[in-house]
Design a protein around this nucleic acid. Sequence first.
DNA 1: AATATTCCCAACCGCTTTCGT
DNA 2: GACGAAAGCGGTTGGGAATAT
Length: 364
Amino acid sequence: MMGRSPCCDESGLKKGPWTPEEDQMLIEFIQKNGHGSWRALPSLAGLNRCGKSCRLRWTNYLRPDIKRGKFSDEEEKIIIDLHSVLGNKWSAIASHLPGRTDNEIKNFWNTHLRKKLLNMGIDPVTHRPRTDLNLLANLPQLLAITSLNNLMHPLDALRLQAEAAQLARNQLLQNLLQAVNGSTPPNLGAVLNLQGSSSPNQGYNPAEYPQPNTQLEGLVNNNLQAQALPTANPLAPALHHAHQMSTNFANSGVIQQPSNDGLIPENSAYFGGVCSTLINNEYVNNISNNNLNSSDGIEQMPPLVSASPEMEEMKPHTNICDPPSTSTTFDTWGELNLDDDGSDYWGDMLEYVPHFSSLSPSIS
DNA sequence: AATATTCCCAACCGCTTTCGT
DNA sequence: GACGAAAGCGGTTGGGAATAT
């Protein structure tokens, strides 16, 4: 745009931190007169500041309805969920957190949540398990070595080739999703998770956001047949969503268990403590506190959503694990042996589909 | 105790969008 | 519709506080 007017650079207007006296002058003026035109406000209020500085000070700090202090666990979870859908739309995220400013949320994300997700093996941009960058960088050499080096132990070669295939699958999935969506794919599970939530995210309408692309997921599945995976499995999308939900908050260091009773409803898929159920063409994710144990100082997560009435009415019919026990872990019931960095999630999920299908009598 | 390093966040910068004429 | 001003917004920065050495 042309004709931008300089802000505080001219005429010696004060910049930098606000003093308590300046704050008081601004508060008293706005309480008495409202802010009106921000440009006109400073001179009317007797402040040697530009209007923009006054506006930011008021909206980010002095406004009486601002909630200050530590973010609650619930707020933290909402921010992560919304960020997985909205990206760096701090203002949009802030609109779902009464009393919090976009600036505050942005700072909280950059200083806390981003690092937290990285430490959990989750890419804070895509909200998906991180790709092993070192391995990816070495992928060509890896393939060359495993195909040419006759001295390598056959099992080691197989393992390395599996890792290379895993990377290729991750890349293929990302590329396909980006090609279709035209942008980094959102975490669909997070969208669905917020349906029916009683958290203070009033006005959140999942219909505004991208919905699951089951056709694409089927395409991805079919493109990965080199691993002898099943073709169209009706539960793959549900499992995909459960997987995404799971990786939002549970990763290395967290003991993941089957649902409380080891049973899952019909038309559902289970992954990492999250059960996704297809209801009226939409996925509803369910998790209970019982699904996670604290480990290594990681706090137990609050329930993401309560079970929907539809799910409550469903009669659990499929036992997907050994007799339930509080000590049951992933390793004891599964084909899902997760790497520390979570890099095998996608592959494990696909490999789990046939197992799931064989145990679910309603799926033919 | 002194110094260096890292963390944190209020405030700023400048681009984009909205509003009023 | 064109234009300019105001407001909105997201990225970046500066410096004080906290922590490490």
